[in-house]
Design a protein around this nucleic acid. Structure first.
Lengths: 227, 227
DNA sequence: GTCTATACGGAGATAGAC
DNA sequence: GTCTATCTCCGTATAGAC
């Protein structure tokens, strides 16, 4: 196939001026093409069964170029997965800081956990998660990275918010770190476990909101301070 | 190497009577040796990186024999993992039926979830779990089997007990299936998630009982009926 | 920087003797 | 049923021209 972006060396712009591609730009475009093809191949086949030949075909560049850029299959894998992890979690950054000042705590928690569940249950992210888990023995760095990224971008801000709410007397959470783990486990964790072992399980929107809502209620039954 | 069980054709018993090995016994002993070596290799390397040559060396039989018994690498993998899954979960069968009649519900739940956590956090079972998750795309049957085994042997009896306790008015669990999922998620699920992405994380006994205890309290705050 | 062509080993699987 | 010896292919990685 080789449907990659071929470079037209005699291309001209709208005024007929020949476009001389910056070599650095061409190189980074190829780099992108390699990374995209490699990610698709690794997600589809796993690390060991992934073939550098297949990545070569998918990227449209030669195999030697891939090795010039990344050195080895292992380094390519780490670069690709390590690069995509932060981008993946960046999707769910917002709406955390508003939590401490939300008028309706239940509604705020519901929105936050539901958003998080919707993203983490996406098939592409579930596949990435399975891939990282399956390669933990070979690449323990990725587990550490996953945990750190997940913590920095999600649990961390929540812990801060819970600490604040505890100080204000709105929440009875003397161990905010554990409280966050439990909230996430009781909400997102439930459908995530189902999808982990049954990737094609249909989870309707009604079902999801019901489960998440019940998890938030479970959390509040223990941690909310009633007047 | 080949440290497998070699057959001594001229062996005699304590009375000097020659032992004529039953061919069927010899065959099933070799079968065992193959399965053991294959399990070790698959756990260590994953499916794709596992080598049939390595399994051959580890089992002490010839490669042709392995293929006569199992036909292909895929079939060997399914037979080995599918065979070990039920045995793995069989360890935690007992102590469920006592739950409905336990005098102290909290203590009973604590014991049950702690036992379950201790087993599921064992390194060999965590490795098996990672292997199954990582190969979900290639072998979806194993995900179904894992879920079914886990459910039949653990969640199922718990659901029955919760239904009974709900009928008696001891528990306020109109959706016992969800209640069980939440209990497991809030207790076992928390340290399990940590170990999933950080296999060598030390979890002290005190820490484990603290986390599990807090999870049980969270559960009871919502579901226990207070007079 | 990028390509084509190739080196070299190890993979899964089988033929045929016993 | 089990073995030894071998087939065939595809894997990663690189040499050398441009």
């Amino acid at each position: 196939m080789g449907a990659g972006a071929e470079i037209q060396d005699d291309a001209t712009d709208e005024y007929g001026i020949p476009i001389i591609p910056d070599p650095a730009d061409a190189a980074s475009r190829k780099r992108r093409a390699i990374i995209d093809a490699a990610l698709a191949e690794f997600l589809a086949e796993g690390y060991s069964a992934a073939s550098m030949d297949a990545i070569t075909r998918g990227s449209g560049v030669s195999k030697a170029t891939i090795y010039k850029h990344f050195g080895s299959k292992e380094r390519l894998f780490l670069a690709v997965i390590g690069g995509v992890l932060p981008k993946t979690y960046a999707d769910l950054e917002p709406s955390d800081s508003t939590l401490a000042d939300a008028p309706d705590l239940r509604a705020a928690l519901l929105r936050l956990t539901t958003d998080r569940a919707r993203i983490l249950l996406r098939p592409d992210i579930m596949s990435l998660r399975r891939l990282v888990i399956g390669e933990m023995d070979r690449f323990p760095q990725l587990g550490q990275l996953w945990y750190r990224v997940s913590y920095d971008m999600n649990n961390g801000p929540l812990v801060e918010a819970f600490t604040e709410l505890h100080a204000r007397g709105t929440l009875d959470a003397p161990d905010p770190v554990l409280a966050v783990q439990q909230l996430v486990a009781a909400t997102v964790g439930v459908p995530q476990l189902v999808r982990t072992f049954s990737p094609d399980a249909e989870i309707s929107d009604e079902e999801l909101t019901r489960v998440i809502g019940s998890g938030v209620d479970l959390f509040l039954a223990r941690y909310a301070v009633r007047p």
